[in-house]
Amino acid sequence: MDSAIETSALTKRYGHDRALTDVDFSVPEGAVCLLAGTNGAGKTTLLRILINLERRTTGACEVLGLDPACNGAAVRAQVGFVSETTDWGYGWLRVGEMLAHVASYYPSWDPQYALELAQILAVRMDRRMKALSKGQRRCVQIVTALAHRPQLLLLDEPTDGLDPLVRDRTLRLFTEHTADTGCTAVVSTHLVSEVAQLADHVAILRSGAMLHQGPVERMLGELHRLELDAPSGWSAPSELQTAVLRQDHAIGRSPTLLVTGQLASIQPLITKSGAAIRHAGRLDLSEAVVARLQSEPKS
């Protein structure tokens, strides 16, 4: 399968600060990729580099087969983008004028579809941009991101500031768009549970480095929550240390371990240490992302 996004050794420095370090980010065509990470991990910087709103310091980057640093406008014309900030300027423009202005950048803009989207999201065309609340400005962004039926959606905290009803409608619109166009999407969000059903790929950034990426099913298949029957004072054997992401404090005598790897190779080590697995369970996507973020940095 071809990649919609492919970066290698992508690095971004602001003076002496490194925002991104050697990031290899790959999203196959047609995937919906959750981009997760701690605050300040570089998610927004990464998304902005992909459409050349920021320039990379070093490394390579290809989006829809083009290098955004050389073909910024051509890439942006095929990308639906919801930026993290809703502060656009153009406060004096009415929403309808704003949409007409944005439309001129996109050859494939569908004015009829734009009107439908605006209606679904309760966007009023006669309001001035400066009079809109954060959530309403976000809705205008969502209209502009979808109305040209892009092949690639880059969504940076797309539901931040939206009320529960509009949030639900927005998720429905994104889902319909994905089903209709087979487009690729990258969604950066702190609300993992919101996109847990939509995402089939996941990428986790920590302190500017790519901590983990790949299909969601693979990540969930590699993580296990083990409830153990263990003698008192038991602790994980040293052979297991690399596999254990977290050991929860035992209540009574059954410690719980979060481990990564193949269960078949972990089980004998547990048995050898004098404990038995009472129950092995899977994590959901939110738990898995937190478990990955909590794990000790590799030295």
Binding site: L171, R172, T175, E176, T178, A179, Q197, D200
Partner: peptide, 15 residues
């Protein structure tokens, strides 16, 4: 249809 069920359940169409 895949589209309808995806939209109703907010699920990835590929799923």
């Amino acid at each position: 249809s895949v589209r309808q069920l995806a939209a109703d359940l907010r699920l990835n169409p590929n799923t």
